[in-house]
C-alpha cells in the first residue's frame, strides 16, 4: 500500500504485476455525514496490508465499500483490473474478494462444515435437479464439497469440530471459522475486520502465524483492520491510517510508527479522553 502515485511500498515481488486492488478517490456520505473521503490505495497481489485508525474513523465502512455492501458516493474500485461499480455484493464476491465481519456473522444454526460448504457454493457444480433428486452427480459433487471443506478446516486445525454447531463454538474458533468460510470462495484478496478482537495473547500469536500461512499457501493478498498495534506492526508490509474518514498516512510500519500525524491522531484522542475522564 503506497502513497499514490509512487509504488515504493508494494512488496518488490508484486511490483510488476497488476495490483489486486486499487481505489481512486473513494468516498461515501451518510446523509450529511462524510464517513469516508478521498480514499485512494493500491494493494499488491500477495501483500499483507493494514488499515488502522481510531474508533469511528471509517475503517469498516471502507470494507463495506470494497465488498459493495455500500455503493460509493464518489470514486472507483478496481478489483484485479476490473471495476466493481454497479455490481451486487454477491457478484463482487465471485470476482475474487472475500471478507470477515467485525461482529461475527456465521450461519450459526448450521454445522461448522456446512458453513464452509456454503463458502464453496460457487465452485461446486450441482444443479437444482441434482439437489432435489440426489441423482445426476449429486454424490460426486457432495463428496467434492465435503473433501474441500475438510481440507480447509484442517488448515485451521478445526477438522475435528466439523459436525459441531457453528453458533456454539468458542469465540476464537468462530473467528477462525469465518476466515475458513471466506477462503472457501477461492478469493484473490481477503479482508479481515478486527480478526484479533477478543483474543488472548496466545490466540493472537497463532492468528499472526495463520495470516502469514494464508498468504503463503493460497498466494493471495490480505488486508486487515486491527487495533492491536503489535500484530499490525509485526505482519503488515504496508499500512494505511484513517482518521475522520480521511487517509492521514501511508507507509511501512517504521514510517507509520514515527509519523507525527499518526501519533497526534492516536495520542490526541487519548489526551482528550483523559481530560474528559478528569473533568
Amino acid at each position: 500500500m503506497v502513497p499514490v502515485p509512487s509504488n515504493a511500498i508494494i512488496p518488490e515481488r508484486d511490483i510488476d504485476k497488476t495490483p489486486i486492488l486499487e481505489t481512486h478517490h473513494l468516498g461515501i456520505d451518510f446523509g450529511g455525514l462524510t464517513a469516508v473521503d478521498e480514499f485512494s490505495l493500491t494493494v499488491g497481489r500477495t501483500e499483507i496490508a493494514g488499515l488502522i485508525g481510531p474508533n469511528g474513523a471509517g475503517k469498516t465502512t471502507v470494507f463495506n465499500l470494497l465488498t459493495n455492501v455500500y455503493q460509493p458516493t464518489r470514486g472507483d474500485i478496481i478489483l484485479d483490473g476490473r471495476t466493481t461499480a454497479r455490481k451486487t455484493a454477491a457478484q463482487v464476491s465471485r470476482m475474487g474478494i472475500a471478507r470477515t465481519f467485525q461482529n461475527i456473522r456465521l450461519f450459526s444454526e448450521m454445522s461448522v462444515i456446512d458453513n464452509v460448504k456454503v463458502g464453496l457454493h460457487n465452485s461446486i457444480n450441482q444443479s437444482l435437479a441434482a439437489s432435489i433428486t440426489h441423482l445426476f452427480g449429486y454424490g460426486k459433487s457432495e463428496k467434492k464439497s465435503r473433501d474441500e471443506a475438510l481440507e480447509l478446516l484442517d488448515f485451521f486445525n478445526m477438522a475435528d469440530l466439523a459436525e459441531h454447531q457453528a453458533g456454539s463454538l468458542p469465540y476464537g474458533e468462530q473467528r477462525r471459522l469465518e476466515i475458513a468460510r471466506a477462503l472457501a470462495t477461492h478469493p484473490c484478496i481477503i479482508l479481515l475486520d478486527e480478526p484479533a478482537a477478543g483474543m488472548n495473547p496466545s490466540e493472537t500469536t497463532e492468528l499472526m502465524e495463520n495470516i502469514r500461512r494464508i498468504r503463503d499457501n493460497f498466494h493471495i493478498a490480505v488486508m486487515l483492520i486491527e487495533h492491536d498495534m503489535n500484530l499490525v506492526m509485526n505482519i503488515c508490509e504496508g499500512i494505511c491510517v484513517l482518521d475522520h474518514g480521511k487517509v492521514i498516512a501511508k507507509g511501512s510500519p517504521e514510517e507509520i510508527k514515527s509519523n507525527p500525524a499518526v501519533i497526534e491522531a492516536y495520542l490526541g484522542r487519548k489526551k482528550e479522553a483523559a481530560e474528559d475522564a478528569e473533568g
Partner: peptide
C-alpha cells in the same frame, strides 16, 4: 428432505441464518 440436504438447500438456510454473510460468499439471495 433432499432439497434441504443439498447445495441449494444450504444456500437457502444460509440466507435465513445471515443474509449479509450469504451475499459475502457469493450467493444470489
Amino acid at each position: 428432505l433432499n432439497f434441504v440436504n443439498s447445495k441449494t438447500g444450504r444456500a437457502v438456510t444460509a440466507i435465513r441464518d445471515n443474509r449479509i454473510a450469504a451475499e459475502s460468499v457469493g450467493i444470489g439471495v
